[in-house]
Design a protein around this nucleic acid. Structure first.
Length: 562
RNA sequence: GCCCCCGUAGCUCAGUGGAUAGAGCAUAGGUUUCCUAAACCUAGUGUCGCAGGUUCAAUUCCUGCCGGGGGUACCA
């Protein structure tokens, strides 16, 4: 419809004097229904170049549009309002045509092919296997997964990738932590020590426990399982402990992701970049390009040439690379794999590092504009009105599993998606637990379940989807309001995908549920005359489809009864 | 110091150039002989942090300031 009107308007404007050739008319859907279904501010924008009163310009455009004339099966009315807006009103017939299209598309309604078969890779979660996923990881996981869904729905072939590092210092400490716990099981008389874990807080640990070791219960569990399986045969070589811990923790992480409905396509081990020698080749190429120098025994990247205040160390004087170098190699790898869109989902703590990655791959000759970094702000966990400091190492965290046990998988996903990524998310655990039935996700699911119930009841009394509906019977205001709301769905999906902002879809679905409530209140099905009831069944079904499809994109179930 | 994000109703947040700034929660009241009351309806509140600027039009864009958070390691 927008396309039709834009074409008509362009023809009219082309015939008017003084309109710039490159003038781009803008359309919008007015929030106030009195202002019609679609409006354009063209006359206001033209006021300056034409040096005429905008209302006068609007009059001329309106007259010319009426003379064309506009197709009465699409547009019934053009009016001038306010300072010079042109408001258009859709013909009812147009709405019912759209409804037929929606019903025909079914569970594919909302899918568009703007991606044109292009490829995208979304990197998310990417937690190193040092402990269970926490609430903090949850926002990353759910955001990334939903952005991947949105890209899928807008025509991209999407790869979901999990990047991890199981070779660094943290993993060694993990192995040592398990080893120490194991040794204490072998010999309970082993001496212990106290280590500081915070301001005035101490933990009693085995003598061999690393100073900055991991204190979580899962470490005990892993040690206990190793002891049960191998007795005292393992000795004090850290390697088997590290490997066992990684395996157990990764299995745990994957199980948690599965509960959230997340399935990765690929797991990318940072170590593979060393096996392929990519890390050092990357360094050589940066050096050849003239952006690398040696100083104080370390290797530096000249990030000052890209507007940063300081240069950045790529290789420490110990000969060990900092994480930036493999990060650059990894992104070069993704670019070389040919993805059209590369989306990274990072916490706010990465905000200073990704520009280095962008600079790095540009130096390597790649088009860094293909990379799109979604930075989300941290989750502040609040319990009993107090913010909770979370640390994987100190084991002062709430796991994602615990959260899902308390409030459920659907609420967990929805909660993380409700707000714009760039705003801080205050997660009040007490509220989430105690008042979880007030979470908006139930509002959406309830609306869906209620539609299913209505349709079941309608079929019980003898109405059927087998009959061709006369959709033109849908002229009640509550019906047209609902239809217009439903038709926004594909555009909302596109906008949410483009902006990488899933919360737009969550907000929209609430509006759909509200519009359906209005229909439910004013328009009955059971008890109505057969033709009207049949038409309304189809409209209710359309509303169910939009809710179901929208919830599917968000990764949330749409129950048929509650 | 410098960089990034945020500042909108009592609370949590939508709203990125338009016509009277919205929703949920909370508060007060009302609605079930009627397809699911996990619902619906009604009532009320705003110096859109402050000050300038650009524009026919600014909560939205630009600059400065104030406040909150994050970053600014040869840590990841």
């Amino acid at each position: 419809m927008k396309d039709y009107l834009e074409a008509q308007l362009r023809e009219v404007l082309a015939a008017m004097e003084g309109v710039p050739a490159d003038f781009q008319p803008e359309f919008e859907t007015p929030s106030n229904p009195d202002h019609g279904d679609l409006a354009t501010n063209a006359a206001l924008q033209l006021a300056r170049p034409l040096r005429r009163n905008p209302r006068q310009i609007a009059e001329e455009i309106a007259t010319r549009l009426r003379e064309k004339p506009l197709d009465p099966k699409k547009i019934t009315d053009v009016e001038i309002a306010g300072p010079g807006f042109l408001n258009f009103r859709f013909a009812e017939h147009f709405l019912t045509q759209e409804l037929a299209g929606l019903l025909a598309a079914g569970e594919a309604y909302g899918r568009t092919d703007g991606g044109q078969g292009k490829t995208a890779i979304v990197e998310y979660v990417s937690a190193n296997p040092t402990g269970p996923l926490t609430v903090g990881h949850g926002r990353n996981a759910v955001l990334g997964d939903t952005i991947a869904n949105l890209l899928d729905w807008t025509g991209y072939a999407v790869t979901r990738e999990y990047y991890f590092n199981d070779a660094g210092r943290q993993m060694r400490i993990l192995g040592e932590s398990v080893c120490a716990r194991y040794q204490a099981l072998v010999d309970p008389a082993l001496p212990t020590k106290k280590i500081k874990v915070g301001e005035g807080e101490f933990a009693e640990v085995p003598e061999t426990f690393p100073e900055d070791g991991y204190l979580g219960d899962y470490i005990h569990d892993i040690a206990r399982r190793l002891y049960d399986a191998h007795g005292d045969a393992l000795g004090d070589d850290v390697k088997p402990f590290k490997e066992a811990a990684e395996k157990a923790i990764f299995a745990d992480i994957k199980a948690t992701m599965q509960r959230l409905g997340i399935r990765m396509d690929t797991y990318f081990n940072e170590h593979s970049l060393y096996e392929k020698d990519d890390v050092w080749k990357t360094l050589d190429r940066l050096r050849e390009a003239g952006f690398v120098y040696d100083k104080d025994g370390a290797v530096w990247f000249e990030t000052t040439k890209f507007g940063k205040e300081q240069d950045t160390v790529l290789v420490k004087s110990s000969g060990e690379p900092t994480y930036r170098l493999p990060d650059i190699a990894y992104h070069a790898d993704k670019l070389a794999r040919g993805f059209d869109k590369i989306v990274d989902v990072f916490g706010a703590d990465h905000i200073a590092t990704y520009p280095d990655v962008v600079s790095g791959v540009e130096v390597l000759g790649y088009d860094a504009s293909r990379i799109d970094v979604v930075i989300y702000q941290f989750v502040t966990l609040v319990r009993g009105g107090e913010p909770v400091k979370m640390s994987t190492r100190k084991a002062t965290y709430v796991t994602l599993d615990e959260l899902m046990d308390e409030v459920g998988e659907d609420v967990t996903r929805f909660f993380f998606l409700m707000r714009a990524p760039q705003t801080h998310l205050e997660f009040d655990l007490d509220l989430a637990k105690e008042a979880s039935d007030k979470n908006p996700v139930f509002y959406l699911q309830y609306a869906h379940a209620r539609i299913c119930s209505i349709l079941r009841k309608a079929e019980e009394v003898g109405f059927t989807f087998g009959e061709a509906p006369d959709l033109d019977l849908l002229t009640h205001e509550a019906e047209t309001v609902l239809m217009k709301e439903l038709f926004r769905f594909p555009e909302v999906v596109q906008q949410a995908a483009k902006a990488r902002e899933p919360h737009r879809l969550a907000t929209y679905l609430r509006d759909v549920a509200t519009a359906f409530s209005g229909f439910y209140r004013d328009c009955r099905i059971v008890g109505e005359e057969r033709a009207l009831a049949t038409a309304r069944m189809h409209l209710a079904h359309a509303a169910r489809l939009v809710l179901h499809n929208g919830l599917t994109v968000l990764g949330i179930s749409s129950p048929e009864q509650m």
